[in-house]
Structures are given as structure tokens and as C-alpha cells.
């Protein structure tokens, strides 16, 4: 092929001259190792990559998971960040892709890209108290942070988990929560919106648990994940409890197609959730909570 003016630089050269790396749109291959039901309608998948990578991730990050022929969705990592060879994801079937993923049996092929996104601020929490507030499936992206906090237990003050769920059947990771609580290494309060017979725990929304948290507000870092309305009300309750806005972190959600900052789908006014989040310090996204449908 005759080339453009033998090596002469065109206007395009240099503008876009980055070396071509691996294609970030291309999924890696993995297989399902195990599948377990973790609540009435949430399943936890354990995935092993075909070509093992260092599976290290920061608690709060997510992967893009592909069900071949169906589609791809962002799912947070819900496993132990110290277990390097297995990827754990907890999935509730809501759309076609999450339904296909949640139904995958051991041996099934899955595609994955990631991990992507910002993590929970573990470093800022060292030396102080940590308050973890989860609503519903929001406990999944917070479980890695609990593993990490427990692994370095002596570096933190009081650790409290406030967890709100729709009903007793919807309580995620039930056995684990009981064991965390029994071993007294963290203080756990669980509430349900609607009780059933046999439930002798707290009933009400998760914000009603905030006054029970045994933490020193001025030296507490709060990590919050759940539906947007739950996070909005929780922030108000935490603030009323004396925790400053700068010490509150949220995990935000918007539709995502690429997780690379290229598709534009996860815009939330000034930020792209995949690129700048999903974990944000509250004061960074505070203005966004004041307007509907952003």
C-alpha cells in the first residue's frame, strides 16, 4: 500500500497517538465454580477465570459480567478481597441479564471485565469508628469492606453494621451476619420493613437503627449503600446523629454499558459513575440529591 506522503505527520497524528493497548471492550472468560442462594431472591456466584489473573480488587469495586448472547451488566464484587483466586458476585434477578446470570450453574461459561471503579475509603477509617449502613442488596458491595475491616480488626475502633431488609426472607448472608455478631467483633443491628411470624428482631426502616449505633460521631466514617431514597434518608439520620457530611460515603448507581467512561450512560450531572465512582464522598454528590430525575 502506498502510504501517505512517506511518514509525513498528518493533522491526526499526535492528537490520538496513544499506543494501542488491549481492547477494553473485550471480556475475559471464566466459569462458574459454585452457586448458592443467599436470600429469597439473591444468588451468589463463585467464578474462576480461564486464565487466572490477580483477582485483587478494592472493596466497593465492580465487574462487568456477560451472559453470552444475552448481555452485560455491572455487578459489585461481594467476596473477600484477600481470596485472590475466586471472584464472588451476589446477584438479584431483575432484568434479562441478571436473570440469566443468577441462573448459571457450575461449569457455565461467563464473560467478565474489570474490576472497575473507586473503592470504600478504608485508609480514612483507620484509627476511628466505622459505621456500615446497608439497605437490601446494598449489603453485597459492603461485604468485602467488612471482610477487610475484620482482617485488620485491631486498626479500627468500634465497627457497627446497620442492615435493613424488606422482610426476614430477604436478609442477605444471614449465617454470616449471625456469626459476625456472635463473635462480638462487630456490632450488628438488623431491621426489616415487614416482619413475618417468627421474627423477633427490629421492624422499621434502617434509619431507625442509627441512634443505636455505638460510635463516636466525630471520629466515625460511615459507608452507605442501598436504594437512592434509602441513602438520602440515611445521610440525614447520620448527620442528625452528629456524623459530618465529609465522613459519609455512598455507592451510586446509574445505567452502565462500558464501565470505561466511553458510553456516556452513567452520567450523573458532573460525574460519570463508572469513572468517578461508584463510591463518592457525600459532599461531592450532595447537590444531586436535591433534584429529581438527574
Amino acid at each position: 500500500m502506498s502510504m501517505a506522503a512517506e511518514g509525513a505527520a498528518s493533522a491526526a497524528a499526535g492528537v490520538a497517538g496513544k499506543p494501542a493497548g488491549p481492547d477494553p471492550w473485550l471480556p475475559r472468560l471464566g466459569r462458574i465454580v459454585s452457586r448458592r442462594r443467599d436470600s429469597r431472591d439473591a444468588w451468589t456466584l463463585e467464578i474462576r477465570e480461564q486464565i487466572p489473573q490477580s483477582a485483587s480488587f478494592r472493596p466497593g469495586q465492580f465487574n462487568m459480567l456477560t451472559a453470552f448472547g444475552i448481555g452485560e451488566v455491572p455487578i459489585s464484587l461481594s467476596g473477600d478481597p484477600a481470596a485472590m483466586d475466586r471472584l464472588i458476585h451476589t446477584i438479584r434477578p431483575v432484568g434479562p441479564v441478571s436473570t440469566a446470570l443468577a441462573q448459571m450453574r457450575p461449569g457455565a461459561a461467563i464473560g467478565l471485565r474489570g474490576p472497575f471503579g473507586s473503592g470504600w475509603p478504608l485508609r480514612q477509617a483507620v484509627g476511628g469508628d466505622v459505621l456500615v449502613v446497608a439497605g437490601g442488596l446494598g449489603l453485597a458491595p459492603l461485604r468485602p469492606v467488612l471482610y477487610a475491616l475484620l482482617a485488620g480488626r485491631e486498626r479500627y475502633g468500634r465497627i457497627t453494621l446497620l442492615y435493613g431488609s424488606r422482610s426476614p426472607d430477604d436478609v442477605l448472608f444471614h449465617r454470616e451476619i449471625v456469626s459476625w455478631s456472635r463473635r462480638q467483633r462487630i456490632e450488628v443491628h438488623v431491621t426489616v420493613d415487614h416482619a413475618a411470624s417468627g421474627w423477633d428482631g427490629h421492624v422499621g426502616v434502617v434509619t431507625t437503627l442509627v441512634p443505636r449505633a455505638q460510635c463516636e460521631p466525630q471520629r466515625t466514617v460511615a459507608l452507605v449503600c442501598g436504594p437512592e431514597v434509602m441513602m438520602r434518608l440515611t445521610v440525614a439520620a447520620l448527620h442528625a446523629h452528629g456524623i459530618p457530611h465529609e465522613a459519609i460515603y455512598l455507592s451510586m448507581e446509574r445505567n452502565m454499558k462500558c464501565a470505561l467512561g466511553l458510553c456516556g450512560r452513567c452520567q450523573l450531572q458532573s460525574v460519570l459513575v463508572c469513572r468517578d465512582g461508584p463510591v463518592f464522598r457525600y459532599d461531592r454528590v450532595r447537590g444531586l440529591f436535591a433534584h429529581k430525575e438527574l
Binding site: S10, A11, A12, A13, V15, A16, G17, K18, A20, G21, D23, P24, L260, G261, L262, R275
Partner: peptide
């Protein structure tokens, strides 16, 4: 950004 779109990049570089 952190991830360049390779398809755009190839077309852009050649233009």
C-alpha cells in the same frame, strides 16, 4: 481518559 477507544483511535489516526 484512562481507556482509549481503539476503534475510534484507529480511524482518527488514519484521517
Amino acid at each position: 481518559g484512562a481507556h482509549a477507544d481503539l476503534h475510534y483511535q484507529a480511524r482518527r489516526n488514519g484521517a
